[in-house]
Design a protein around this nucleic acid. Structure first.
Length: 420
RNA sequence: GUGGGCGUAGCUCAGCUGGUAGAGCACUCGGUUGUGGUCCGAGAUGUCGCGGGUUCGAGCCCCGUCGCUCACCCCA
């Protein structure tokens, strides 16, 4: 009886060997700077009460209105697979009272997120993000630090062909004043129905339209940056100063649009040059009213989310990942069954010392075993047969050039630690 | 959600105006008994994405469906 094959659900990103090693490395590298800066792990559920996102992210956003995986659980509750990270973090911070201690609360997360979009290169229905949130302090220095940590993550991977765009969405007062003038401006444009509908939901969206005629039409539109209140403006100026001081290059993009409703004040986006249409590799910003909306106290916060899948694509596009960083150090080939037990113990011992050690299993001929060693990418090979067990001396072979050195088995660990 | 391209061995693909499948790479074994990457030989591998239709006959034509891909849209 033959069964039908079951395929992965549409549009999910998954990573199996050999790519998974690079994926893991990118994910850990991206978040490493946050750990160095004192951010602590927060591990959250991948599904939440639907209201968390509809209220937190915003009913009017595309993410909430048409991209969420929402279903009813057995108890009749409306559940949604998390489409982004910030709302969940805020929910947990409020629920656990983390905001009752010292501020800011500094946390990092890593995991899967879900959006029911049409898949495309770099756009998946299940994708991976790492991110941080700094909650409870309204200080331009934190804004700068958060941006710097994100930037550093990309630098750890070795990315170069990306740019940082920043802007400020100001406070509620700034946006209200701008909105009036922007709507008046849009009123006069000749728009198709779909575009007009989009403008009605969020007029800022029109700044992001890629069509040349729309870009031209929006050229003279009033910019939010020109409407910033004195306080917002001085905050933004200070953030830029700090970034300058840190040597982080950025360009101010007053037309930048973010898709989540909660953003306020400092907002930023990392864009990679070598990716296709899905070129945003990370982004974030400040969110002043979010915690209050979710039933907590009125604290401000700032954070970012970085796309692990896209960062990996970017790293591949730039060719900055070398495969040999993921291979083993040593490959041991036992000849004969008696030698297998010797090799098992030896390998366990070497691994205990941190040496990445593989064993040739099965009963393949020496040639085949060596071929397997070659394929594995291991840097060194040792063959252990009866002679070696008796003499206690093995030949340590460096695979890159075939050179062989005689080493006592008892000193193998020391010898390897000296060369790897 | 809308539109374009594609779907043949593990991978990259070929398959003439329809006559029931092939190459390269990879894989396994061998070519001197214990030293890989080259070379030579042998071998295994496909419900031609899936379902239906047209036909004496379909990988090739038609319809549907699923998936991949690119753009719009959206964003990580």
């Amino acid at each position: 009886m033959k069964y039908e094959k079951i395929q992965a659900p549409k549009g999910v990103s998954e990573y199996a060997p050999p790519l998974s090693a690079a994926f893991e490395w990118v994910r850990e590298s991206l978040i490493a700077p946050a750990k160095l800066a004192g951010y602590k792990l927060i591990e959250l559920p991948v599904f939440e009460d639907t209201a968390l996102f509809s209220r937190g992210v915003g009913e009017s956003t595309d993410v909430v209105s048409k991209e969420m995986y929402t279903f009813e659980d057995r108890g009749g509750r409306s559940i949604t697979l998390r489409p982004e990270g910030t709302a969940g973090v805020m929910r947990a911070v409020i629920e656990k009272g983390l905001d009752r201690g010292q501020l800011p609360v500094k946390v990092w997360y890593s995991g899967q997120f879900f959006r029911a979009e049409r898949p495309q290169a770099g756009r998946y229905r299940q994708f991976y993000q790492v991110g941080i949130e700094a909650i409870g302090l309204d200080d331009p220095a934190i804004d700068a630090e958060v941006i710097a940590i994100a930037d550093q993550g990309f630098k750890v991977i070795g990315l170069r062909n990306y740019r940082l765009e920043i802007t400020s969405l100001g406070d509620a007062k700034s946006r209200a004043a701008h909105r009036v003038d922007l709507l008046t401006f849009i009123e006069k444009l000749d728009l198709d129905e779909a575009t007009r509908a989009r403008a009605a939901i969020n007029p800022l969206r029109l700044f992001d339209d890629k069509r040349p005629e729309m870009k031209a039409a929006m050229q003279k539109a009033p910019l939010l940056l020109d409407y910033l209140s004195a306080e917002s403006l001085s905050n933004f100026t200070q953030v830029k100063k700090y970034l300058d001081q840190l040597g982080i290059t950025y360009q101010v993009n007053p037309r930048m649009v973010r898709g989540l409703d909660y953003y306020t004040g400092t907002t930023f986006e990392f864009i990679h040059e070598d990716l296709g249409a899905q070129s945003g590799i990370g982004g974030g910003g400040r969110y002043d009213g979010l915690m209050e909306i979710l039933g907590g106290q009125s604290l401000s916060g700032i954070g970012f989310g970085l796309g692990v899948d896209r960062a990996l694509l970017a790293a591949q596009a730039e060719g900055v990942i070398s495969d040999d960083q993921f291979t083993s150090d040593l490959f041991i080939i036992p000849l004969g069954d008696e030698q297998k037990s010797v090799v098992l113990s030896l390998a366990a011992e070497l691994r205990g010392a941190g040496i990445r050690t593989e064993i040739a299993f099965g009963d393949r001929a020496l040639k085949g075993a060596l071929k397997a060693a070659d394929k594995s990418g291991s840097r060194y090979v040792v063959i252990i047969g009866g002679d070696e067990v008796v003499s206690g001396i093995v030949e340590l072979k460096r695979m890159s050039d075939g050179t062989i050195t005689s080493v006592k088995i008892s000193e193998l660990q020391k010898a390897l630690l000296g060369v790897i």
